[in-house]
Amino acid sequence: MTLADPVPDKAKEAVSPLYGVVDVLRRDRIAGWVIDRRDPGASVTVEIRREGQRIASVPANRRRRDLEANRFGSGLYGFGAAIDPPLMEGMEFTVSVRAMAADGTEAILQPLSRVLEPSGEQRALARLLEEVAACRALLEAQQSLAERVERAQLRMETLWPEPDPVPPTGWGLRLLSLAALALALLSLTLSVMSL
């Protein structure tokens, strides 16, 4: 989705009494603010068009706390409109936002992102935050794998009982060993005598 960017007339832009931006541009909603610098209390209407067809016309009279906090007039310059039906993902649409004062003065509002491009530091910080999130996900996956291995080991231990302890050696085993030794000696003696 792109916001219409007509070739601006620099002379008109420099003296336009209407000033504002589009700071929300989503598939289902568009919002921003606009003020008539000649008369900060005057009513301004915002017309939103998609592919040249008007989809909304709303007054710019909503309270904007950010403008209020920065002592930007009364702060009652916000506008917002739902885009119904929402714009489809992956499809290209051109949306234009035009502010109109009561006396017929008009101005095209541009998206805030064109007014304030992110700095290199902000882009680097965004990439760093993405890397941290990826590392966190990898660590959680490894911890989950370790827990599953532990559970499997516990199950295996319950399936195989511990081996019986080695029975103590008694006289019977000693006698059997002595009998085997005696037979070996007898066999050796008979082998030597037959030579």
Rank of each mutant, 00 (worst) to 15 (best):
55 I>H: 02
40 P>C: 06
50 R>D: 07
37 R>G: 03
60 A>K: 05
42 A>N: 01
81 A>Y: 02
64 R>E: 03
62 R>S: 07
68 E>M: 12
39 D>Y: 03
75 G>P: 11
69 A>I: 08
65 R>D: 15
69 A>V: 10
48 I>Y: 02
64 R>F: 04
43 S>E: 13
53 Q>R: 15
44 V>M: 01
76 L>Y: 05
41 G>W: 15
79 F>K: 01
80 G>W: 05
79 F>Y: 08
42 A>L: 05
77 Y>P: 00
60 A>I: 05
45 T>S: 10
66 D>E: 13
59 P>H: 13
78 G>I: 02
53 Q>T: 13
48 I>Q: 02
46 V>R: 00
65 R>F: 14
36 D>A: 11
57 S>M: 08
66 D>R: 14
67 L>Y: 07
57 S>Q: 12
69 A>G: 10
37 R>H: 12
49 R>K: 14
78 G>F: 01
46 V>A: 01
66 D>S: 12
76 L>F: 09
61 N>T: 12
81 A>K: 00
75 G>V: 00
45 T>W: 06
72 F>P: 05
51 E>Y: 02
82 A>L: 09
64 R>P: 00
46 V>T: 01
80 G>C: 11
60 A>H: 06
56 A>N: 06
43 S>Y: 07
80 G>L: 11
51 E>D: 10
71 R>T: 08
76 L>C: 08
75 G>Y: 00
51 E>I: 02
80 G>V: 09
41 G>A: 15
44 V>R: 00
69 A>N: 11
47 E>W: 01
76 L>Q: 06
46 V>C: 02
37 R>N: 11
68 E>F: 10
46 V>H: 00
